[in-house]
Every structure is written in C-alpha cells, then in structure tokens.
Amino acid sequence: MKYTVSKNEVKNFLDKLSASGNLIAPVRENSLVKFKKIANPDEIEFDYINSKYSIKKYFLLDKEVLFEYDKDSIKENIEEKQRIFFGIRPCDVHSLLVMDKLLLEEGMEDIYYKNKRKNSLIFALKCSKSGENCFCRSLGTDDLKEGYDLLFYDEGNYYIVKTGSEKGDNFISKLEEKQETEDEPSDPLENQKKLSQDQIEKLRESFNSDIWKKESAICFSCAGCTTTCPTCGCFDVKDDPDLDFESGKRIRLDASCQLKNYTGVAGGHVFRDERSKRFKHRIYHKFKYFVDQYGSEMCIGCGRCITNCPANIDMVKILNKL
C-alpha cells in the first residue's frame, strides 16, 4: 500500500518512536553522519547523502561475544532488544539482503545475526540526491522491492510512504493524517558513476590481467574499504580469557581480506601474500564469486570504499578499464 503523509505527521510519528527508546536514526556529529539511538527526534538528520559507516555494525558487531565459558560449561547469551531503524538508505537495505544470503543460509544460520535481524524494523528513506561516488543505479539498488517495513519518499512538502510488511501496516494504521495514493514517487537520482553488467562480466576473462598489479601498486592494504563496506562481514574468532585463565569469552572480531595475515596458516605460510592478490580477491568476491555462489552482486553501489580510500582508489574506474 502507498500513502501520502504530511511531514508534520511523520515528525509526530518519530516523536512517539523515540519515546519508546528503540529508535535508531542518522544524526550529524562533527560533520559525520552516523546512526545512533535517538532520544529526541530533533536530533535526526534528514539532509544527508549517506552515513559514514553503514548500519552493518548494528547487525554484525565489530566485537561480538559468542559465548562465555568457565572450567566446566559453555554459556551463550542470546538476547536482542527490539530496534526500529529510521532513515536507512535503500542501498544499505540491499546490503542487509546480501548479508542475509550468507548468514541466514538454511540450516547454517548465524543465530546472533538472525535474532538481530528478526527484532529490527526497517523504515527506509529514499535518497533525494546522489553522492559523488554513488553507483546504485547501475546495480539496481537505488530502490526497494523488499526488505523494508516502511519506505519513505521525500516529495518536498510531504512523504509518500510504502508499506512492505505486516508490521509496517500496523504502524501506518496508527497514523491519523494519511491518504492512500496511486501516485508514483519522484525519482531524483542523477549524475551517478556508471558500471554496466557487460563490464562486470569482463572480470571472467581478466583474472590474469596485469591490471591488478598496476592498480594495487598504490594500495596501502589499510582495510579502510572492508571496514566501511556494508557487505564485508568477514570475522576472526578469538578467545578473550579472564585473568584466572579458566573462564572467559569467545568473541568474534571483524577481519579484513586486505590484511596479510588473513590467509596465514599454522607453520607460517600465507596464501595471498602479495597485495595485488588481496586487492583482486575483494573485487572478485564482490562481483564474481558471490554472483556464482548466491546469484547476486555483493556490492550495493554505495561508494564508501571509494570515498574512504586514503589512496583514492576507485573500484568503478578500475572495472571500467577492463
């Protein structure tokens, strides 16, 4: 269903959501936009391209306790609070759908991720303009067909709101000033970087190309791309023992395929010891391996890896050179 809702009514709506203590929305702090728990809806930033970090950190924590152990037992603590996310961009909602394919694979579900997903409501907000590194249009991640409970389109003086789930319907039913509409929301995204499917397909013939050595020569292997990428979810599993060394926690920490020790095995051998191999692996994982495994690109076109690269490496530019 589609409704038009006044901006004032949406503000009231967010007022009530923030009073519940469960609302997480974008705020601007020291010029950086990030997702934070909201106490007062006036804090919410509406005029932003996208957050510096994606909402991945709310679903796959940087450091997550898997269980606690002591001398004779293992105890898990799986309790997740209900959360409402307002203002997630459509591309980032797509990133959750990508992560779902990996982490909610039937029979092999990641219980920690699953509980966080299940107990989160997604109120997405369509972008009003493109950022300089956006290429969501090319990957079809600029809009949503699924993955949201409510989807807001800013139409200037009012919002068009789409409902995408029963929970979304429940929420919208409590809004007093709303009108069903058949209008299509406007589609303002222009001037994006372009990446065609044909170009992505060329990866299949380019594995032995010398472009990888050439383009990775300026890479610092700093892991900035993987840290800010909304679909990079690799992790290490480590123990964090207490001082008595009998009890402690098993934790997972985010890991990066760009770091050398990522493929190191007992005895010291490192499989992807060359920087160019690690550089190439990430691009191939995003645009070929994941396609072969799960049927879609692992990239959602947010451009964060480009924006945050200290060497100004532009993955789209490289792919377009193939």
Binding site: F13, E76, I78, E80, M108, E109
Partner: peptide, 25 residues
Amino acid sequence: MPIVNLWGKNFEIDKKMKNIYKPEL
C-alpha cells in the same frame, strides 16, 4: 498511542535454534 506494543507478539528470541559456533564438550 502505545506504538511499541504493536510489536508485541512479533518480538521473539529464537533460543532453540542450533548455534553453529557453539562447541559441545
């Protein structure tokens, strides 16, 4: 408007699900 109660019965924690990361003794 008790908006959060709308969630009510939908909120659940799946404790019976197999935890793929948890070893057994």
